[in-house]
């Protein structure tokens, strides 16, 4: 029962805090432009160009391709493209961790679906008569094995690399080692737990019990695993590991946001709104005149 509560609570907090962070970033004050090229949505993306390459650019339609923007975004999310292009040795281990996480997310969903199947009488096993049961069984095996292996390997190697690389260790704080160790520990307890259950039949049973708040006998290792995963899920969004939230804003709202302030545009409305704001704090250098008193 307690493990069920931990499981639900950690997932709710993971999603809740992540969404709250995104909400906070989305509601930050309107900022100045900081475009950095190449910008994927631009017509001249291949050479890094922009609408400023046209004469009288303001009188022509701003041709953008949101499809290309989404493709570039997916390349970054799925493959960590920039790291692949600019620092290949680091990419191998960082990608192992990230790919491991993606696979484990998929595995978790598959376990839930598998548990639902079993509760409804569809057997999920190698000898299942249902094609869906068979499919779910094998896909769960692949995602689970690879996810646990890649995730543990990636977090472990990232930890070791930070510990022994002369440059990285100068910049790594104890907290950052802790972050990697927490993920590693959560995954290692998973590997130890599920290595006794190579078909993931017990994992589906546990998942079913967790989902339905059904009490079940959990040994020390399983209890530790569920608690560690719970802590990890709650800790990730409050730490800087929540970069999955930040990354959307750094690209879409900073580096790729080049919409000009044209008459009648949304940007113009935001500019007008922002210019009526009177800050409550002011700078102190002698050449800066104090701003007008804050509006009541």
């Amino acid at each position: 029962m307690i493990l069920s509560i931990i499981a639900y609570l950690s997932i709710v907090l993971f999603v809740g805090i992540s969404v709250y962070k995104a909400y906070q970033f989305a509601n930050m004050p309107f900022h100045g432009r900081m475009d950095l090229y190449p910008v994927p949505k631009e017509k001249g993306y291949e050479h890094g160009g922009s609408y400023y390459e046209e004469i009288a650019w303001w009188s022509k339609p701003h041709e953008v391709s949101h499809v290309r923007e989404i493709i570039e975004m997916l390349k970054e999310i799925i493959f960590i493209k920039k790291l692949f292009e600019n620092q290949r040795p680091f990419w191998w281990i960082s990608y192992a961790l990230h790919l491991g996480i993606y696979l484990l997310m998929a595995w978790t969903i598959l376990l839930v679906i598998g548990a639902m199947f079993e509760l409804n009488g569809i057997i999920v096993a190698a000898n299942s008569s249902s094609i869906w049961g068979l499919l779910l069984f094998y896909v769960s095996l692949v995602t689970g094995y690879l996810g646990l292996a890649f995730g543990a390997l990636g977090s472990g190697l990232l930890f070791l690399r930070r510990l022994f690389d002369n440059t990285l260790k100068k910049y790594t704080t104890p907290q950052e080692y802790f972050n990697l160790l927490l993920i590693f520990a959560a995954l290692m307890t998973g590997i130890l737990t599920w290595s006794r259950d190579l078909s993931f039949g017990f994992a589906r049973e546990v998942t079913g019990n967790l989902v339905t708040f059904t009490p079940f006998a959990a040994d020390g290792l399983l209890t530790l695993h569920v608690i560690l995963v719970g802590i990890m899920l709650i800790y990730i969004p409050i730490s800087k590991m929540s970069h999955y939230v930040g990354k959307y804003f750094t690209f879409h709202k900073v580096l790729w946001d080049n919409n000009p302030n044209l008459k009648g545009s949304d940007i113009e409305q935001q500019v007008i709104k922002a210019s009526s704001f009177r800050p409550t704090t002011s700078w102190s250098a002698p050449h800066i005149k104090p701003p007008a008193a804050p509006e009541k």
Partner: peptide
């Protein structure tokens, strides 16, 4: 990090918070 710096607050906070120190 105050409203005196609204014009760069979002980009600043993002760059301040999220560096993974990958050294790329």
């Amino acid at each position: 990090f105050s409203d005196a710096n609204n014009g760069v607050l979002q980009p600043l906070l993002l760059s301040f918070e999220y560096c993974a120190k990958c050294n790329t």
